[in-house]
Design a protein around this nucleic acid. Structure first.
Lengths: 133, 133
DNA sequence: CTACCTGCAAATTATTTGCCTTAAC
DNA sequence: GTTAAGGCAAATAATTTGCAGGTAG
């Protein structure tokens, strides 16, 4: 599995992104920075590879649009997503992993994965001094 | 906001459903039980009303298809979804609500909502005596 | 009568796929 | 030269919307 041009370019965009990026975000950003930008299809295919390689995680906020971000290989994390400015903050630890043992004991259910995203109002926005998008 | 025929029929289906139902599930179930079943559009619109009324919750499992289930008004819960048989079990308490205070204190973030679904293998399936769909 | 519910068809939108061209090793 | 990557157009598929007709109070 080679790390192709397309993958590399997608990674570059994700490295510099300060927030979650959709495939379309990544694609339009490339159109401004690259002279010969990859097509949307390539972005999707690159993202798929990167997710499989464990370098990128897909995040689903339930709005029908998948977002992506770089992660340390094999790790993952969750977000506090502001309903007002749409920015997100990483949680520094996964709240679910520590519960897995209890779930196994109580329900006999072996946890393999989970979706967790938290919505609300960030401190900037509740102060009024926000940067609402 | 009146509880229309369409809404009532959708509720009836959800009452008897033993698991999460997609709009299409509900619609096709009606085609077998009702002599003059509502259209898909009506199902979607009814579900929207019911969610707004707090009688039904929408559940997003990240597969691009929204599921629905009845809830006690104002409550909500999360699920253990089996990757093998696709059945789901309710968690009897929300794991996030108790963390809200800590999140507020640590991040200044006021929690208003969240998505949480847990995937894995249920006890039936790990025993091998499962009913894989 | 008037407002809202319904249904059908058409529109929308993110994502995927087919297929042919092109670049990599 | 063979094999996989990239591009473009077309296909999917869930959901939403426009609009015309129907129904209830």
């Amino acid at each position: 599995m080679r790390l192709t041009k397309g993958c590399k370019k997608v990674l570059e965009v994700l490295e510099t992104a300060d927030d979650l990026s959709s495939a379309q975000d990544i694609h339009s950003k490339m159109r401004t920075t690259e002279d010969k930008p990859p097509g949307l299809t390539t972005v999707y295919r690159s993202l798929e590879s990167l997710v499989n390689m464990g370098l990128v995680q897909a995040v689903d906020l339930g709005d029908g649009e998948r977002r992506y971000e770089m992660i340390k290989p094999g790790e993952h994390h969750h977000h506090l997503v502001c309903d007002a400015c749409k920015n997100s903050v990483h949680l520094d630890q996964c709240l679910i992993e520590e519960l897995e043992g209890g779930i196994k004991a109580k329900y006999g259910f072996e946890v393999r994965g989970h979706i967790l995203e938290i919505f609300g109002i960030c401190s900037d926005c509740s102060k009024g001094s926000n940067g609402i998008k």
